[in-house]
């Protein structure tokens, strides 16, 4: 009994020792890096208010962008494991024009509901994740000029018997947490039973498994999905009128917002978004959709 206790104590002491050692190393590292450059130290505390000023991004040598990785064609992972997509490629172009190289970028995967918190806590400079401009979100973050326009619609299973938005009372509708569809239906349709998932892919799987009668989401995603899945129809009625989708920066970061606006205007002259549309969206949406119904070139809203 005593022997086992002793070996236990030795083991415990070893683990403790290693932990302390590692923690010590970590502490020392951060100290030297802080001590080396007192300005960056100061700016990182200021970062609580407005992280990612242009100077900070340049000093750091990379742009940190929150993107989707499960929402084709806007942000997804290609067969080689690279982050690509309409929004993701636009972010790479931003990095190229700001820092001279499109690889000077760090991507952070976000979920719809975590986009605003990521900006609020200053963990990313920019969110380029298909975020629709809404009044509530304007209170929490600052939007640049838009790059896409979108309306929220409902896709229903043909078996559900839903013909129009008037039929959804008492039905089970799937939404992805934190999307405009979630916000709209939660507030305006308390008589609908909402089932909320964290990810777009989970919501689509749940729709396929028949866990709800329909799924409310941005129409571009729904049209693309309906083309590949028979037995589902996108209802023509819109939950809300068309709204702009725009990149977002932390509240008060006017410098970066202004830069993105100028950048979007510049890219508009060379029709860069149309190029991205041809690359990612045209095949998904089909030939019937007019690109100008989807993209907003040059940041000019209507």
């Amino acid at each position: 009994m005593k022997k086992t206790f002793r070996s236990f104590a030795t083991m415990f002491a070893t683990i403790l020792f290693v932990t302390v050692l590692l923690a010590g190393c970590g502490g020392q590292n951060s100290k030297t890096s802080n001590g080396k450059d007192s300005t960056s130290d100061k700016s990182s505390t200021a970062g609580a208010h407005a992280s990612g000023t242009l100077q900070q991004i340049k000093d750091r040598g990379k742009l940190i962008v929150g993107i989707f990785t499960d929402k084709p064609p806007f942000g997804f992972v290609d067969e080689k494991g690279n982050y690509v997509g309409f929004d993701t490629d636009l972010a790479k172009r931003f990095a190229k024009d700001l820092l001279g190289d499109e690889s000077k970028i760090e991507f952070v995967t976000v979920e719809p509901a975590s986009r605003v918190p990521y900006l609020q806590s200053g963990k990313v400079d920019l969110i380029l994740a298909n975020m629709t401009v809404t009044e509530e979100r304007k209170q929490a973050v600052d939007f640049t000029n838009p790059n896409v326009k979108v309306a929220t619609q409902l896709i229903v299973s043909d078996k559900s018997g839903i013909q129009s938005l008037a039929d959804i009372k008492g039905k089970k509708i799937i939404v992805t947490k934190g999307t405009t569809a979630d916000i709209y239906l939660t507030k305006k349709n308390p008589d609908v039973e909402l089932i909320k998932f964290d990810k777009n892919t989970e919501s689509l799987q749940a729709l396929k498994d028949g866990r709800g009668d329909g799924y409310a989401q941005d129409n571009i995603i729904l049209y693309a999905w309906a083309r590949k899945n028979a037995g589902y129809t996108v209802l023509a009625d819109k939950l809300e009128k068309e709204a702009p989708i725009a990149p977002a920066v932390q509240k008060g970061n006017d410098e970066l917002r202004e830069w993105v606006n100028q950048e979007l205007a510049k890219l508009g002259e060379e029709k860069y978004l149309l190029k991205l549309y041809d690359q990612y969206l045209r095949s998904e949406l089909g030939p019937d959709v007019n690109p100008n119904d989807v993209i907003v070139e040059g940041g000019k809203w209507q």
Binding site: A113, V116, P117, Q120, Q139, K177, G178, I183, F197
Partner: peptide, 22 residues
């Protein structure tokens, strides 16, 4: 909470998603 059970974490993340009161 990952499979849409409205327990404490689900409630928390839902409200963060709706009102950004992180």
């Amino acid at each position: 909470s990952a499979i849409a059970i409205p327990e404490i974490l689900y409630t928390t993340t839902s409200y963060i998603a709706l009102y950004y009161k992180t």
